[in-house]
């Protein structure tokens, strides 16, 4: 990603944090990033809409990169998922800008998150494939790691955003969720 684009994302994020999504205009972003309107349009032919979508996408990437870093040294897939879920849920609840926009402008934010989510599912799945493959002797015999990774990525995203009955601040609950539900179809049952 170019530095200029990075600067636009950071400027947009600053504006959104201050005034919200709807009130963030292209002029605001131009002023905040100290880039002319014309240059902005050259960089983002889709204008304001593209800038907002890419900024949210970049913030989601940042979120999941920090998640990947937090679990980088996990020794097995269980530890990776358990620590990842706990860390991600905590970060999500502590993400002040996200929580604010979810309360004040969900109708503006959620369609963009949903579009970006398709890409994020693919990226999480790619991250998970080698972690699943590394468990080779413990996997169900006919398991396709790519298919399993895609399933896990979708479920993990869903659980982080909407944990439902699960309390993700409780390590024992997360242990049960990972062992009994998420990995039940992926690892061989323990004898």
């Amino acid at each position: 990603m170019s530095d200029a684009k990075e600067r636009v994302y950071s400027a947009t994020y600053t504006r959104v944090a201050r005034v919200g999504l709807d009130k963030t205009t292209l002029d605001d972003v131009a002023k905040e990033a100290e880039i002319s309107r014309a240059t902005l349009y050259r960089m983002f032919p889709g204008g304001r809409e593209q800038i907002l979508r890419e900024t949210i996408g970049a913030e989601m990437d940042r979120f999941f990169i920090s998640l990947a870093n937090a679990i980088a040294d996990a020794s097995d897939i269980e530890t990776c998922l358990e620590r990842g879920l706990i860390f991600a849920r905590k970060s999500l609840l502590e993400h002040a800008v996200l929580q604010k926009i979810l309360t004040t402008e969900p109708e503006a934010l959620l369609p963009i998150i949903t579009i970006e989510q398709h890409r994020i599912v693919g990226e999480i799945a790619q991250y998970l494939v080698p972690l699943i493959s590394a468990e080779k002797d413990r996997l169900r015999s006919d398991l396709d790691p790519a298919r399993a990774a895609e399933f896990l990525a979708r479920m993990v995203l869903s659980i982080i955003a909407s944990p439902g009955r699960w309390d993700l601040s409780d390590p024992q609950a997360v242990h049960a969720l990972v062992g009994e539900e998420l990995l039940a179809g992926i690892l061989q049952p323990r004898s």
């Binding site: 979810l102 969900p106 109708e107 503006a108 959620l110 369609p111 998150i113 949903t114 869903s158 955003a161 909407s162 944990p163 439902g164 009955r165």
Partner: peptide, 19 residues
């Protein structure tokens, strides 16, 4: 009009939907 629907399916809306 997904902006009408998604608040009922994502984040806390997702929790309500699942329940």
């Amino acid at each position: 009009e997904s902006e009408r629907l998604l608040p009922h399916l994502a984040f806390t809306g997702g929790d309500r939907f699942l329940s």
